[in-house]
Nucleic acid binder design. Structure first.
Length: 289
DNA sequence: CTTCGATCCTGGTAGC
DNA sequence: TGCTACCAGGATCGAA
């Protein structure tokens, strides 16, 4: 499941292998992969052809490629299973190949969007006026992520505490703080010894800063390891958690001993997914919702 | 306005 | 063995 660290690794791969190249032709093989593009697949392909790709950018789990005149950007979201691969033009199509981008140069590689579950996709959007990075207008509401130098920490802490919700819901709220998904939310909460259902209103400033620190730490740790699975013809993305899955302390560890206290970890159904936590280190709030 | 839950999708696997 | 049911989950949209 690509969250911020995985998407950042992909961004770096695109920066190296795709930036500066001019698009020759685009092939949309599955309409769902361009469903966020209002004009449909043919329009997406026509508008992208002939354009030159600028420096890839990222905010949270969103990735985008500004185009030459900065009027439009290609927005990409990997969803749950999306991959952006740089492959030799002659390589056999992947089973779930959804979009192919051919280039007008002699490098011999093409960009492929492969996505089994089709939660992800590509689309073209006007950029926010004055945005140097070519921020697509449709993601202007997405908060900056905790690794962004422009992340406003004071604003975040105040907004978090003003929410009438629970900690994990808030961590997953991309308009409050972006880039966190189910895996890193559970990891950060475990590190902070906080229960996922604790009301945000009860989190005092110091604890909130501590939690944010753990979010950053776990993401940086994952990023450091994720970078190693990169090679030249494969813009990373193993869709999985990369090498970091061996370092997870909470996610997926039901019945395994807590790495701090040895108590068996628990899994609880939560919002049509799961929450993993240590019942001893992460005590539930007194008044549970 | 804010919060909450259902829904989209497909492949792997557990269970019968 | 072959089938069904369930699980993974980010973002969106409509309901409360």
């Amino acid at each position: 499941m690509p969250e911020l660290p995985e998407v950042e690794v992909v961004r770096r791969g695109l920066a190296r292998w795709v930036a500066g190249r001019t698009v020759a032709a685009v092939e949309v093989l599955h309409p769902r992969a361009v469903r966020r593009h209002t004009g449909g697949g043919a329009d997406f392909a026509a508008r992208l052809a002939g354009r030159t790709i600028g420096a890839p950018q990222r905010r949270g789990k969103y990735l985008w490629l500004p185009l030459d005149d900065r009027d439009l950007s290609v927005l990409a979201h990997l969803g749950m299973s999306g991959q952006l691969l740089v492959q030799p033009a002659g390589a056999p199509d992947e089973k779930h190949l959804r979009i192919r981008v051919r280039f007008a140069d002699s490098a011999g590689t093409e960009l492929r969007f492969v996505d089994q579950r089709t939660f992800g996709g590509l689309s073209l959007h006007p950029t926010v006026p004055g945005s140097a990075e070519g921020l697509p207008d449709v993601i202007a509401h997405i908060a900056r992520d905790p690794l962004d130098p422009g992340f406003d920490e004071m604003l975040y802490h105040a907004a978090l505490r003003a929410k009438r919700t629970t900690l994990k819901r808030a961590l997953l709220d991309q308009s409050l703080i972006s880039g966190i998904g189910n895996i890193y939310a559970d990891e950060a909460l475990w590190r902070a010894k906080l229960h996922y259902e604790r009301p945000t209103t009860t989190l005092a400033g110091p604890r909130s800063r501590e939690l944010l620190g753990h979010v950053r730490d776990v993401m940086n740790a994952a990023l450091a390891v994720g970078g190693t699975s990169f090679d030249s013809l494969y813009v990373n993305v193993n869709g999985e958690s990369g090498y970091f899955d061996r370092s997870l302390d909470a996610y997926g560890r039901e019945d395994e001993p807590c790495r701090r206290c040895g108590t068996p970890m628990r899994r609880r159904p939560w919002m049509n997914r799961s929450s993993y936590f240590c019942p001893r280190c992460q005590r539930p709030p007194r008044v549970s919702s």
